[in-house]
Simulated scan of single mutants.
Amino acid sequence: MEGQQQDFDLLVIGGGSGGLACAKEASQLGRKVAVVDYVEPSPRGTRWGLGGTCVNVGCIPKKLMHQAALLGSMIKHAHHYGWEVAQPIQHDWKKMAEAVQNYVKSLNWGHRVQLQDKKVKYFNVKASFVNKHTVGSVTKDGKETLLSADHIVIATGGRPRYPTHI
């Protein structure tokens, strides 16, 4: 593998909640830490930023959409409690989806800033083991780098498999 090598006390593979917590805590304890995180696009092309499944396509967007539905229901019944709301009530799905995505992007950015503040090096790369203390990493544009560490934590979470025989 070409490219330079960078050495760390701890390398965390996975930028979800577990990996980020691990990396930030180790850094607070004075360790030289890096996080590598890359999401292989799904068969439908879904990909996302730092923060893992919950932040990007799970818990957070689901809760925001649920909140939007609750607001619609509350507005529908508001007139019973003295609120004058123009009827019929309109909903703009595109606007809601954009607001949800903008919120998720703000969380992605916040995670990057937190890593930077804690002196954790972030690599948006796909990593694979070379040996027990070294991973080879490849950027989206094909640039290769070796990352070595005394300790490596695998915190990649999981993704459901799509059936291939439908």
Rank of each mutant, 00 (worst) to 15 (best):
R47I: 13
W48R: 05
W48M: 10
G49D: 11
G49T: 09
G49M: 09
L50F: 03
G51N: 04
G51S: 11
G52L: 01
G52R: 00
T53G: 02
T53Q: 04
T53C: 08
N56S: 15
N56E: 08
N56R: 03
V57M: 13
G58D: 08
C59H: 05
C59W: 07
P61W: 01
P61N: 01
P61A: 02
K62T: 12
K62M: 09
K63T: 02
K63L: 08
L64R: 01
M65S: 05
A68T: 08
A69I: 07
L70A: 06
L71K: 02
G72L: 11
S73W: 08
I75P: 00
I75W: 02
K76F: 10
H77V: 15
A78G: 14
A78N: 12
A78T: 09
H80Y: 15
H80K: 15
H80D: 13
Y81L: 14
Y81S: 11
G82K: 05
W83D: 10
V85K: 06
V85L: 10
V85Q: 07
A86H: 10
Q87H: 12
P88W: 07
I89K: 06
H91R: 11
D92Y: 13
D92F: 14
D92W: 12
W93R: 13
W93T: 13
W93A: 14
K95W: 07
K95N: 10
M96V: 15
M96S: 07
M96F: 05
A97Y: 03
A97T: 04
A97H: 03
E98M: 09
A99W: 02
A99G: 05
A99C: 06
V100S: 01
V100W: 00
V100H: 01
V100L: 01
